[in-house]
Simulated scan of single mutants.
Amino acid sequence: MSYRTALSEVLTSVIEPSAGVTGGEGRFPRGSVTALGRAGLLGLTVSAEFGGGGRGLPEAVEVVARIARVCPATAAVLQSHYTAVAVIESHGSPWVRGEIAAGRHLSSLALAETAEGYVEGAESAGGVGGQELEAQLLVPRSVAARTGDVVALRARKHQVVAAGEADSYVWSSRPLAVPDGMSLWLVPAHAPDLFVPARAGGAGPRGSATSTVFADPVLVPVDAMLGGDGGGLDTVLRRVLPWLLELRAAAGTGVLRPPVVDMSHGVARRPAESLASS
Rank of each mutant, 00 (worst) to 15 (best):
P221L: 07
D229H: 04
G231Q: 08
P221W: 08
L219N: 00
D234K: 05
V213L: 15
G231H: 01
L226G: 14
S208F: 04
G228K: 02
V220P: 05
G230I: 12
A209F: 09
V218Y: 03
G228P: 01
V220N: 08
S208P: 05
A224V: 05
S211L: 00
G230C: 09
G230H: 09
F214G: 00
L226H: 13
S211E: 00
A215I: 03
G207S: 03
P221D: 13
F214N: 00
G230E: 04
G207E: 03
A215P: 03
G227A: 11
V213H: 10
V213I: 15
D223Y: 15
L226A: 15
G230L: 08
S208D: 10
G230V: 09
V218P: 03
F214E: 03
D234C: 04
P221E: 13
R206L: 13
L233S: 09
A215Y: 01
D229M: 07
G230K: 02
P217G: 06
M225K: 10
D234H: 13
V218T: 12
G230D: 09
D223C: 12
L219V: 05
D229Q: 06
S211R: 01
P217A: 06
V220M: 03
G207Y: 01
P205A: 13
P217N: 04
D229G: 06
S208N: 05
G231C: 02
G227F: 14
A209V: 07
D223L: 10
S208V: 03
D234T: 14
L233P: 00
V220F: 04
L219G: 00
T212M: 05
P217T: 02
L233F: 08
D223K: 05
